[in-house]
Design a protein around this nucleic acid. Structure first.
Lengths: 144, 144
DNA sequence: AACAATTAAATTGCGCACAACTTAATTGTG
DNA sequence: CACAATTAAGTTGTGCGCAATTTAATTGTT
């Protein structure tokens, strides 16, 4: 067969695999906080920025309302956030952290360290990877 | 807030994003072949290796029967593959390409080139990324 | 041979991720 | 002011991805 359709020559397969692998490393660690990886990302945004509406969260995480609405409802069900429509613009749903949601941040502090250990990579490789990946993402978005 | 929980300092977020981005680039191209990215990966394995059973496909793609069984049923529905239990061991389901499935390979030949164009990255960056990503995946799997 | 242990797929259930569409509120324009 | 256009979020439907469990066949052990 032609070389370019061989699995080992695919560039995107390792990326797809790495992403799954990395999220798999997060899974048991985040499970202790009763969070999924995507939920954790939303919490990171809220811990850092405070009150945000759905589309603001979406633009930072590259997720649309089809993904976020049910996810946010689950976070609300866990009493970590509140969803409330803005009086100034009833179309906009404002997301705020509850007391419990804010408190969860302290428990999350150790996660980056735990992940770094689990991934078992040197800081240099990690930075190199991050730089390269971001460069490529920027490159891709340039063409849009 | 503590620096290590800032979104921009997360290493895994860019990886997760890149994987989504890359699969997003495949989507319209594969849609012309009526395939999803995961289905394409399965087809790659079959085009390269010929007849394979479910767990052989799974170990190459890091997917379990919970993912593969319904996916393979969809490929069967599209008449691209056949699923048949082996006479020698009735537990094993053997997957073979149909005529139509084999013919699809010719249509797929152009995909790697199209993706490389869509990603808009230099071959050097692509190889560097692949090497680094594979190194890290190997590293992670070492600890298991 | 009998039966416990193992193995391969399938099933069930949950949570994304995204396309396409809907609903409702707001804004812009004649 | 009226109404078309736009915007924000929600809804619906499809397809993974994975954990946990089930089913059925095979293998190992006594």
């Amino acid at each position: 067969m032609s070389e370019n359709l061989k699995l080992e020559n695919q560039v995107c397969f390792p990326i797809y695999n790495l992403a799954k692998e990395v999220i798999g490393q997060y899974r048991p660690i985040l499970a202790e906080l009763d969070l999924t990886y995507s939920q954790y990302l939303v919490m990171l945004v809220l811990w850092e920025k405070g009150e945000q509406n759905v589309s603001e969260i979406g633009s930072q995480l590259n997720l649309d309302s089809g993904t976020l609405t049910p996810l946010l409802k689950r976070l609300e069900l866990k009493k970590l956030i509140e969803r409330k429509r803005k009086a100034s613009d009833e179309r906009v749903v404002s997301i705020t952290l509850t007391k419990e949601g804010k408190e969860k941040q302290a428990l999350a502090e150790c996660i980056p360290t735990k992940i770094a250990e689990a991934l078992n990579i040197s800081t240099e490789d990690l930075i190199e990877l991050k730089t390269l990946v971001e460069k490529i993402v920027t490159q891709i978005n340039k063409t849009k």
